[in-house]
């Protein structure tokens, strides 16, 4: 299914020449209307597997029964994880049914949050942050590296083998380790074009490199070395009366 979609070239508009009625640049990751396709239509069945159903029930039990619908976001996430990383119309319908809410209310949630992918994605989902702090620290170099590494695809595209999808995202809250990207559920921080490549190559081989800063520093400590709290912190008992030492 995925391959069928991927093989179809997506017509791209020539770089913006202003025409009489030019639509504004694409703003979000996908259309805000659903169209039936072979890989995404309400006839494709979806149901939670036994494990997820149990988890779903657990999640639902957190909310008062008349406000079951409050569980819609965690359940959509669960559905997205089970459905190869994307939220198809069947996932949304199933969750609407499970939570006894009109399907449209689920669609509203799923279209509001950009982290619900409403189109299929590759096995590994690479999200490169290009918001200001990351941008200042060279996020576009990272983005270009990623795109070129995958043979010149554009943000939003999936590689031909269906292994990677790259998108540009807004701040992920890891600015202190800018630039950064997210692969699947893990943050890879303090990137340079080289380390970026390394991370991607590891993923291509099916390994999972160690998440976190790739520059070797610990968490978000000062990269030039510590300027304060350099001495050994004193432990319990130090400087106490001898009987307490």
């Amino acid at each position: 299914m995925l391959a069928a979609r991927l093989s179809k070239p997506v017509p791209r508009l020539p770089p913006s020449v202003r025409r009489i009625s030019s639509s504004s640049s694409r703003r979000s990751d996908a259309l805000f209307v659903h169209r039936d396709t072979t890989y995404n239509n309400p006839k494709i069945p979806f149901e939670f597997n036994a494990d997820n159903l149990k988890r779903a029930q657990e999640i639902i039990s957190h909310y008062p029964p008349q406000y079951k619908k409050a569980a819609v976001i965690p359940l959509l996430d669960l559905g997205q994880r089970q459905n190869k990383g994307w939220t198809s119309i069947s996932v949304m319908n199933y969750i609407a049914k499970l939570l006894e809410m009109p399907p449209m209310r689920v669609y509203e949630v799923a279209t509001f949050y950009t982290m619900f992918n409403r189109e299929p994605i590759g096995e590994n989902f690479v999200q490169v942050c290009t918001t200001t702090p990351c941008m200042l620290r060279g996020a576009y170099d990272v983005l270009d590296t990623v795109c070129n590494h995958f043979g010149g695809i554009k943000p939003g595209d999936t590689t031909k083998d269906g292994k990677f999808t790259v998108i540009e995202v807004e701040c992920q809250g890891a600015c202190s380790n800018a630039p950064m990207m997210v692969v699947n559920d893990d943050f890879y921080e303090d990137l340079t074009p080289e380390t970026t490549k390394k991370v991607l190559e590891a993923f291509a081989k099916g390994q999972k490199p160690k998440p976190g800063p790739q520059s070797g520093r610990r968490t978000s400590e000062n990269s030039a070395g510590l300027t304060a709290l350099t001495s050994k912190p004193y432990g319990p008992g130090e400087f106490c009366q001898p009987e307490f030492q």
Binding site: V33, E108, T111
Partner: peptide, 20 residues
């Protein structure tokens, strides 16, 4: 008609039923 709603957000918010 609980099928009518808003999809997307911000400047992209649009009115519709999401499905046709």
């Amino acid at each position: 008609v609980e099928e009518l709603g808003t999809t997307g957000r911000g400047n992209d918010l649009q009115i519709g039923m999401y499905v046709e």
